[in-house]
Amino acid sequence: MDATEIQPTYGLTAEQTFGLIAGGEPALTHTVKAAEDSIELAQEDLAAVQLTAQDIVVASAASGQTPYTLAALQYAQEKGALGIGFSCVEDSPLAQLANYPITPVVGPEVITGATLLKAGTAEKMVLNMLSTGIMVKSGKVYQNLMINVVPTNGKTFERAKKIIAEATQTSLLAAERALERANNHVPLAIVLIETKGTIAEAKALLAATNGHVSQAVKLNDKQH
């Protein structure tokens, strides 16, 4: 869920962030027996997405010992990818294997063994924190605004205008005009208004800062 929501929220593609689950998509709505016990399945799933050393694998298993998850993290490390291990058991096999273990202390479940309760909630919160932090660090947020929203319908177009107006302290009309000039690209529209430059200049600033709006604005200030 978190990997999927990142896409429209921050303007990423399905190739950049996605989730894998033991048993594949059918396991999202139906129990796929023994899938989480399969080491081979984990290896096949990661091989199918052509995992490389440039990737990051966040392996999640509440118990920290699910064979599918452990095998996935092991495969990732063999490929040189960064491995993050999320579990709710201190010093679990998953935590020991991970480059960066994350082990929140959730305490006993209300119903013993029902890890979809406290552990499941902790998992969602931790993944939210991870993705939010990464998006902020990579420039997908300006001030505290979700600037990489992709205007694909009336609702998101209005949201984009409001974000631009708030980010630049300007009117909705000015925001709409900038968004039109920027061909519906919100970060470009913001840089246009903040720097008072041309489309070409704004694009050059974003290219020089790898799309990081805050850095693009600061770079413009230095240049002038």
Rank of each mutant, 00 (worst) to 15 (best):
Asn153Trp: 04
Leu192Met: 08
Arg181Cys: 06
Gln96Ser: 12
Ser131Thr: 15
Glu90Pro: 01
Tyr142Met: 08
Thr156Arg: 09
Lys79Leu: 11
Leu145Val: 03
Thr69Arg: 01
Ala165Trp: 12
Leu94Met: 05
Gln96Arg: 15
Ala160Val: 07
Thr170Phe: 14
Lys79Met: 14
Gly64Tyr: 10
Glu166Ser: 14
Arg177Asp: 15
Leu172Phe: 13
Ile193Pro: 02
Leu192Trp: 09
Lys161Leu: 14
Ala71Met: 08
Leu117Thr: 15
Ala167Cys: 07
Ile164Asp: 07
Leu130Ile: 15
Leu116Trp: 12
Ser138Gln: 13
Ala174Thr: 11
Leu172Ala: 09
Gly80Glu: 06
Gly107Val: 05
Ile134Gln: 05
Phe157Ser: 14
Pro151Glu: 12
Asn144Leu: 09
Gln143Thr: 08
Ile193Arg: 00
Arg159Cys: 09
Met125Pro: 03
Lys124Trp: 10
Thr168Asp: 11
Gly113Cys: 08
Ile134His: 03
Val89Met: 07
Asp91Ser: 12
Ala174Tyr: 12
Tyr142Asn: 04
Tyr75Ala: 08
Leu130Tyr: 01
Thr156Ile: 11
Leu192Phe: 04
Asn144Pro: 00
Glu123Arg: 04
Leu117Ala: 15
Glu180Ser: 13
Cys88Leu: 01
Leu117Asp: 12
Leu179Trp: 10
Gly83Leu: 06
Met135Arg: 07
Ser131Phe: 14
Gln65Asn: 13
Thr69Tyr: 00
Glu123Phe: 01
Arg181Ala: 08
Thr170Leu: 08
Ala71Leu: 10
Ser138Gly: 01
Gln65Ser: 15
Ile84Ala: 02
Phe157Glu: 13
Ala114Cys: 14
Glu158Gly: 11
Arg181Ile: 08
Gly120Asn: 11
Asn144His: 15
Ala174Glu: 15
Ser131Glu: 05
Gln77Tyr: 02
Gly107Ser: 04
Gln169Ile: 02
Leu127His: 02
Lys140Ile: 06
Ala165Phe: 11
Val149Met: 07
Ala182Cys: 07
Lys155Gly: 05
Leu192Asn: 08
Gln143Arg: 14
Gly139Thr: 06
Tyr100Glu: 07
Asn184Lys: 13
His185Asp: 12
Met146Phe: 05
Leu94Gln: 06
Leu117Val: 10
Asn148Ser: 09
Gly64Ile: 06
Ile84Arg: 04
Leu188Asn: 11
Gly85Phe: 00
Gly107Cys: 03
Ala175Asp: 12
Val186Leu: 14
Glu109Gln: 02
Lys162Glu: 12
Val110Leu: 14
Asp91Pro: 01
Asn148Cys: 11
Leu192Pro: 09
Lys124Arg: 12
Gln77His: 03
Leu188Trp: 08
Ala76Lys: 05
Asn148Pro: 03
Val110Met: 10
His185Arg: 13
Tyr142Cys: 03
Glu176Ala: 15
Val186Thr: 12
Val136Arg: 00
Glu90Arg: 10
Lys124Met: 12
Thr156Cys: 06
Thr156Phe: 09
Met146Ala: 05
Gly120Arg: 10
Thr152Ser: 14
Gly64Thr: 08
Phe157Asn: 15
Gly139Asn: 06
Cys88Gln: 01
Ala98Met: 06
Ile84His: 08
Gly120Met: 10
Glu123Leu: 13
Arg181Leu: 12
Thr66Lys: 02
Val150Asn: 06
Lys140Pro: 02
Ser171Thr: 15
Leu192Arg: 07
His185Thr: 12
His185Asn: 14
Val191Phe: 03
Thr103Val: 13
Ser87Tyr: 00
